[in-house]
Nucleic acid binder design. Structure first.
Lengths: 271, 271
DNA sequence: CGATGCCTTGAGACTGTTCAAATTAGGTGG
DNA sequence: CCACCTAATTTGAACAGTCTCAAGGCATCG
């Protein structure tokens, strides 16, 4: 089975056998598991390592001094806990697990070696970071300009698509470890209102949630309600025509090795 | 007078005489002005050029199909309209001016040349992009977890600090071309409520606004109200100890030229 | 001096919050 | 497997914050 992170990166560059091999080795080096509600990074620290999520959910969040919490994004299988892999820098938000989580630990020097060994991977990392930032920008719109049911619909559709692209959602159903309180902090509403909003979507025949499994009954209607435009997720694999050379165009020292290209998949069909 | 963009970049790397010179030349090449309410980039297009703002305000925003708008960030003098300078990619939000704006136009090839000629500039660009993303993340917290007066206080303090660091705010007072409608779309509230909230801050003796000039009367109380923590703006110039070599550590092909270093300023005192 | 755009004000409606209590689900030790 | 404990969810009712709609005021600009 392909590693979720490899699967995710291949959304952003056509990875050849060589790149996949190197990546596979690095990812297999140090597998760790964390309990639910475990803090991986604390705001303002400068992480000395990175984690690629293999299984389970985590989240990036910020706290206000009075205890209010805002979740910036959910981290799903295939996601990197710290999207900034280019320069060592302090991170501006904390990261905690929302379920028990399996990760592949990747040290900074490992990352550096990866990038040097495979220019395509560098390109993929950069695009991954861009898309992750794009997801967070879309969240601003979500909490700023959508009503609670629309916000929830948007979050669910986004999550469904992101999980599908790493093969973690079959038949529009997936494990959803986030509690109402977690959803509330992601949506900018209260847990009580999450409960009521969820019931409204349920009553409308759009979703079903039991035993921490979420079933999207009517994706179309959810998308309509949320005015969902999937382009910000960049799942369509366009813009990949000339991956390595595109990077080389602007980044000094990145040369294009175009051998051993395997065809890229287009994700969005059912897993 | 130092160019606002040079001033901004020097927050992120100790720029030497050589870098400043190259930068100065590029910035002087093509100065343009745009009218107020002029759209510079449209969501989903792939820009072929970039603009560094010299004077005036612009904003990055997204529209929903029904006309709702969410402003993601204000672009102030010294800001880059498209923070992604590393790879050519479609942008996920539109950019429009909020006042008449003077910019320095910088083509992609120019940027590429800049980066190659001055590794320190590459480092500065990367950090600039990181900080801009950080500002947008803080906005999620603002609209998701703060009340209207807190949001407004936060936005005002942030803007004050950002303007100060490019010398555009003396005595805690600055030009504020954004209309109530613009502020509303940045804060995730309505224009009517902006009016009322503004009056509350005014009544509290914290700000004064007349003729499109905003005076921050009581910064401390605004910061307290907003629970403002300036660290996300990275104005303190720490983490600059070893700029070029820090980049070289992770990015292949970036070598460290440590000659001709001028001392970096710490911004936050009055301009 | 009339248009236009921007800001202000009021009243009522609505969305989402708060607090508190009841209910359910899950996990653990006996 | 049960009893217990804790965490998570649901529900109700009152309340607060923000929105909507509508009207009026005040600039600025041709």
């Amino acid at each position: 089975m392909t590693h979720a992170f490899t699967q995710r990166l291949s959304c952003f560059a056509r990875l050849g056998a060589q790149e996949c091999g190197v990546l596979h080795d690095v990812l297999g080096e140090s597998i760790r598991t964390f309990d639910t509600r475990h803090t991986l990074f604390v705001e303002h620290e400068t992480p000395r390592t990175n984690y690629a999520i293999v299984d389970g959910w985590a989240c990036r969040y910020k706290m206000l001094p009075d205890g209010r919490r805002q979740i910036l994004s959910f981290l799903l299988p295939g996601d990197l806990c710290n999207a900034n892999v280019l320069v060592p820098a302090e991170i501006d938000c904390s990261v905690s697990t929302l379920s028990s989580v399996t990760v592949a630990e990747i040290g900074h020097s490992r990352f550096s070696a990866l990038i040097k060994a495979a220019p395509r991977l560098f390109h993929a990392f950069v695009r991954y970071a861009l898309v992750h930032a794009s997801i967070e920008r879309e969240r601003i719109v979500n909490v700023g300009r959508r009503h609670a049911p629309e916000r929830m619909a948007h979050l669910f559709v986004e999550t469904l698509l992101r999980l599908k692209c790493v093969g973690r959602a079959s038949h529009d159903t997936f494990d959803m470890p986030a509690t109402h309180a977690d959803l509330a902090d992601a949506l900018g509403i209260t847990a009580v209102h999450v409960s009521r909003t969820l019931q409204a979507l349920r009553a409308g025949g759009m979703v079903e949630l039991e035993k921490r499994r979420l079933s999207i009954i009517d994706v179309d209607r959810l998308e309509q309600l949320a005015m969902f435009d999937p382009r910000y997720l960049q799942l369509a694999n366009d813009g990949m025509q000339d991956p390595a050379s595109a990077a080389a165009q602007l980044i000094p020292g990145i040369g294009g090795d175009t051998s051993a290209i395997v065809p890229a998949q287009t994700f969005r069909q059912d897993g």
